[in-house]
Amino acid sequence: MSESSLAELLRSRGLRLTAQRQLVLRAVLELGHATPEQVHTAVREVAAGVNITTIYRTLELLERLGLVTHTHLSHGSPTYHAAGEHQHVHLVCRECGAIDEISPEMLRPLADQLAAQRGFQVDIGHVALFGVCGRCAQNGEPT
């Protein structure tokens, strides 16, 4: 999203475009998948005075605006990524922490079965599968 379209979206909601909002959105877009702490580290490289509370508030605002979304990829902080991206399932390596993505169509048969048998609608954008990535498996990392 360009800065002018971000400014337009914020103005349409009665909000101002601030440097912090620009920096937080840019950090999420550049990092791909990032916790608030990782966004904070990236933003502080450019603007040392931005505190973690501002990061959390800005991420919440950007999510309400539909620009970012989050998922929980561990027991810690949520992980944010651009909402405009295609919906995807996260693959999280328990050994090295790498995050990969797969098409939600790989889970579609399971989602359809859950809907038919239990009436349960899977929110695929929040699905994370944990395991060991190929690189760690080849290196003989213990599971």
Rank of each mutant, 00 (worst) to 15 (best):
residue 11 R to T: 13
residue 13 R to P: 01
residue 14 G to E: 12
residue 16 R to V: 10
residue 18 T to W: 10
residue 30 E to R: 07
residue 30 E to L: 04
residue 32 G to P: 03
residue 35 T to S: 12
residue 37 E to I: 03
residue 38 Q to E: 14
residue 39 V to C: 00
residue 39 V to N: 01
residue 40 H to L: 06
residue 41 T to G: 10
residue 46 V to Q: 08
residue 47 A to R: 12
residue 47 A to C: 10
residue 48 A to V: 05
residue 48 A to K: 10
residue 49 G to N: 09
residue 49 G to T: 07
residue 49 G to E: 05
residue 52 I to T: 12
residue 52 I to L: 15
residue 55 I to W: 01
residue 55 I to K: 01
residue 58 T to D: 07
residue 58 T to G: 00
residue 58 T to C: 08
residue 60 E to S: 09
residue 61 L to S: 01
residue 62 L to W: 01
residue 63 E to K: 10
residue 66 G to R: 09
residue 66 G to S: 07
residue 66 G to D: 08
residue 67 L to Y: 00
residue 70 H to T: 10
residue 71 T to H: 12
residue 72 H to D: 08
residue 80 Y to C: 03
residue 83 A to K: 04
residue 84 G to Y: 14
residue 84 G to H: 12
residue 85 E to P: 09
residue 90 H to C: 15
residue 91 L to K: 11
residue 92 V to K: 07
residue 95 E to G: 05
residue 95 E to V: 09
residue 99 I to V: 15
residue 103 S to I: 04
residue 103 S to E: 10
residue 106 M to H: 10
residue 107 L to F: 00
residue 109 P to K: 04
residue 110 L to Y: 12
residue 111 A to W: 04
residue 112 D to T: 06
residue 113 Q to L: 15
residue 114 L to A: 14
residue 115 A to W: 07
residue 115 A to M: 07
residue 117 Q to K: 15
residue 117 Q to V: 15
residue 119 G to E: 10
residue 120 F to Q: 03
residue 120 F to N: 02
residue 122 V to G: 05
residue 123 D to T: 09
residue 124 I to E: 11
residue 124 I to M: 12
residue 125 G to D: 13
residue 126 H to P: 00
residue 127 V to Q: 00
residue 127 V to F: 02
residue 129 L to P: 01
residue 130 F to T: 14
residue 131 G to R: 11
residue 131 G to W: 12
residue 131 G to Y: 04
residue 134 G to K: 13
residue 134 G to R: 15
residue 137 A to E: 14
residue 137 A to R: 15
residue 140 G to R: 06
residue 140 G to Y: 06
residue 140 G to D: 02
residue 142 P to K: 09
